[in-house]
């Protein structure tokens, strides 16, 4: 049975960029454990020779012609932004290179 510690929840929250509260750490630790225990049943299926399915439809090779299509104006692009400056999205300082 999978067990989930508060530390693991904190790690998941960091990966998922969620500034969770202390109370949420406890809540999610217990809930995730219950849910994971339930869904771990997928492991019961002996599936060594079963290929995984990532797409429900069997399509392959769907391509677009390399032809331009009208996009958005700068004003439309920025219309939902919290802050803009010089035609760009203004965001808080970035700590590090990607």
């Amino acid at each position: 049975m999978p067990t989930i510690s508060r530390a693991e929840v904190a790690h998941l929250a960091r990966l998922a960029r969620l500034a969770v509260t202390e109370e949420e750490l406890d809540l999610f630790a217990s809930q995730l454990e219950v849910i994971l225990t339930s869904v771990a049943r997928v492991g019961e299926v002996a599936a060594a020779d079963i290929p995984p399915t990532s797409h429900a439809v069997g399509l392959t090779d769907v391509f677009r012609a390399d032809v331009t299509r009208p996009g958005l104006t700068q004003q439309q692009a920025l219309s939902g932004a919290y802050a803009t400056e010089d035609g760009r999205f203004r965001v808080p300082r970035i700590l590090d290179e990607s």
């Binding site: 994971l36 771990a40 997928v42 079963i50 399915t53």
Partner: peptide
Amino acid sequence: TYALSAGYYDAYYGQAQKVRTL
């Protein structure tokens, strides 16, 4: 995030995709 994490992918996400095939 948990199901896709390194170390858990095969047991969770990967296995779920096989169930999908079944």
